[in-house]
Design a protein around this nucleic acid. Structure first.
Lengths: 135, 135
DNA sequence: TACGGCGAGTTGGAAAATCCAACTCAGGAG
DNA sequence: CTCCTGAGTTGGATTTTCCAACTCGCCGTA
């Protein structure tokens, strides 16, 4: 967890990623939609690229224009963001939600965490921590 | 998401919560295990209490000693932390993992996100965003 | 050729947050 | 009486963040 937070735990990092998930892949879009100041955003994006979460791609030579795209690692963050949004919706956000996700089954998504091995829901009570032997 | 991050998105907040999940509910334990400086930790814990994520309880009158306990909102963050840990384990942490979770089915937990309505896995491809009508 | 505009930053200075070590204060333990 | 522990406070140095303004390359138009 601490390692994860070192990569995406700084202010604006996750919000910037959210924008890329929404298809807002250009610097000015990200800046406008997150509210991050441009200098901080520059630093964050650089760090996310360096960490392999985003990839900076030139999509036009003349004029030179780039966009930020998700790598596999970046795409894998979607789950984290879903759960974070879910928690915010449930315990922080008041009033109607500005956005929901619709699942292909037709329902509005209420994400749950399940165990990949058995398919059952993984609640806190059904889990036990196992520390690695310190050797 | 932005709302959620306003509550738990600051540095040390999630790590402090992790410690409480592990049963390290006292100030000094949290400080030692997270590495946060004591003054910042004081502020973070106050904020988490104010936000209703933690609760400060006196567990001994003489001498006066308190501990931080999870509220419902706090417990609900477990899912977020599971996914964050999962991501860190998969894309950031190198070498053997210091800790894994064991599910009651016997397997080491690999958390997946599923749709509560249909029970199917909710991958990015199976989801579509629906914005609230701006009216 | 000049002029405005856009994308993507950079720069400088003020304001806020963080780090760290040392200090406090209350209540036991010896 | 002195030492120790838990839970912070305090002061000062260091980093980050914020913000508005500036730059630079390139384009469209006139």
């Amino acid at each position: 967890m601490a390692n994860a937070l070192e990569v995406v735990g700084e202010r604006w990092s996750l919000l910037a990623l959210r924008e890329v998930f929404f298809g807002n892949t250009r610097f000015d879009q990200i800046a406008a939609n997150t509210g991050a100041s441009r200098d901080v955003l520059t630093v964050r994006l650089k760090k996310l690229v360096a960490a392999g979460v985003l990839e900076k791609r030139l999509y036009s030579d003349h004029p030179p224009r780039h966009e930020y795209l998700l790598t596999d690692a970046g795409r894998a963050l979607h789950n984290v963001m879903l759960m974070l949004k879910e928690w915010g919706d449930a315990y922080v956000t008041e009033g109607p939600l500005p956005l929901v996700w619709k699942h292909s089954c037709g329902a509005v998504l209420e994400p749950r965490v399940m165990c990949a091995a058995c398919g059952e829901e993984a609640s806190r009570g059904s889990l036990t921590p196992v520390t690695a032997p310190t050797h």
